[in-house]
Each structure stands twice: as C-alpha cells, then as structure tokens.
C-alpha cells in the first residue's frame, strides 16, 4: 500500500518534471525547425548543404515527436467525456490512416457490429489509442498482411479486436511493451511511448486491454491481436 503511493507520487513528480522539460525543449526545437525550413527554401536541392539541412530537420522532428508524446500524457489535457459510438471512432481513425494502410499490399477487414451501445468517454483519447495500436500493426506488416478490426457487444462488454498478421511479439518483450520508451524500432523510428500513452488513457476509461501474440516459432500463422473491452451498459 505504502509502496504504491510512493510510486504514484514519484510518477506524479516525474510527470511534472517531464512537462517542464518538454516545454523548455519545445521552444528551441521550434526555432531550429523554423530556421531550417527557411534555409531549405534558399538552398539548391542538389547540394550537400541541402542534405545536411534535411538531416537537421529530420532529427529535430524526431525529438519533437518524443516531446509531443510525453506532453500528450503529462499535460493532463482536459478529459472530456461524452457519449461515444466506438464504431465511429474506428472509422474516423481508419479514414485518417487509409493512405498509409493501403500501400505495401496491406488489406483491411472490418467487422463492426451495427448496433453497439454508446459508451462514456473522450473520443479524441479513444481515437489516439486506436491510432497507436493500428499504427503498430501496420508497422509490422511492412511486407503486406491483413489488418482485422472487429467490434461486438456481448450484453455486458463492448469488445474491440485489432489483429495483424505481423511477426508477433517475442516472449522476452511481452512484459515490456507497455513500458515507456520500450521500442524495438530503429533509432529515430519510434518513441516507445505509443502503447504507454494508450495504456494510461485506457486506465481512465475503466477499460481492459489485453493482447494475444504468436511468433513464427510458435505458430504457422504468426501475428498479434489487441483486445479492448469497454463496459457498455445499455
């Protein structure tokens, strides 16, 4: 009990610290990116200088993404609850990501139950969770695959299932995927904050998130399924 409150406190003060640091970093990053853009316009695209400026832009953009991810969690943005139709959230996110999903031989299979009860929640936050999970799924299906998204209501829970036919998550990583900064992506490609942010949003919504995963050593059909269960009272 005591230990837990110690950790909560420690997390809270880390949050405050992170928010402070993030703000201090955001301004210099905005300045770096802004001037880089100005110089890019004045530089010939075939020159070495242009490549260097592009590198500066890319690295600073990566840093900015990390800061934004951190802030999106610690900022305690007002959590605005309203009645939400989860199918609408899913369709919004899929529309937004459509172009990215459809390249590289990826296919989407959607099976949404038509009459779902509405749930109380923050649609922006729920979309962020869906975005992060779908984003991870398409990342592991770079060479093609099938993204299945389904919703159903079992009289008590609304169950969202998002599955991919990617590589699966190896045993030694399964405990860690929700940890902040845990990533297996190349340096600069991922922040390792996607699932952590999602998990923290989900906690606020009294929701259960689980996953099932099989690597190609474990199954002929490797892949990962994330299952989100929301209480759906009619």
């Amino acid at each position: 009990m005591e230990e837990q409150s110690y950790y909560t406190e420690k997390l809270a003060s880390l949050g405050t610290l992170a928010a402070g640091v993030a703000h201090e970093i955001n301004n210099p990053l905005a300045i770096i990116l802004g001037f880089t853009e100005i110089l890019l316009e004045k530089t010939h695209p075939d020159s070495e200088e242009y490549d260097i400026l592009k590198t500066i832009e890319k690295q600073a953009t990566n840093a900015k993404r990390i800061v934004e991810n951190l802030l999106s969690f610690v900022r305690h943005k007002e959590h605005k609850e309203q009645l939400v139709n989860i199918n609408d959230c899913i369709n919004t996110v899929l529309d937004m990501m459509n172009n990215t999903i459809m390249i590289n031989n990826r296919e989407v299979k959607k099976d949404l139950q038509e009459t779902l009860p509405l749930i109380k929640g923050d649609p922006g936050e729920l979309q962020q969770v869906l975005f992060n999970i779908i984003n991870n799924a398409i990342y592991v299906m770079k060479g093609g695959g099938i993204l299945c998204i389904s919703t159903k209501y079992d009289g008590h829970w609304i169950i969202i299932s998002i599955s991919d036919t990617g590589c699966g998550i190896p045993k030694e990583h399964r405990q860690r995927i929700f940890d902040p900064f845990f990533t297996t992506k190349e340096v600069g490609k991922g922040t390792g904050l996607g699932l952590w942010v999602s998990y923290n949003i989900i906690k606020k919504h009294n929701v259960i998130i689980t996953f099932e995963t099989k690597t190609k050593e474990e199954s002929e059909k490797p892949g990962t399924t994330f299952i989100i269960k929301l209480p759906g009272e009619r």
Binding site: N27, A30, I31, G34, F35, I38
Partner: peptide, 10 residues
C-alpha cells in the same frame, strides 16, 4: 525570445 522573434519576422 530573440531567436523566435527573428524567425517569426523573417
């Protein structure tokens, strides 16, 4: 912040 000022004005 002088650099931000310069950036915005440019």
């Amino acid at each position: 912040e002088p650099h931000m000022l310069k950036l915005l004005s440019m």
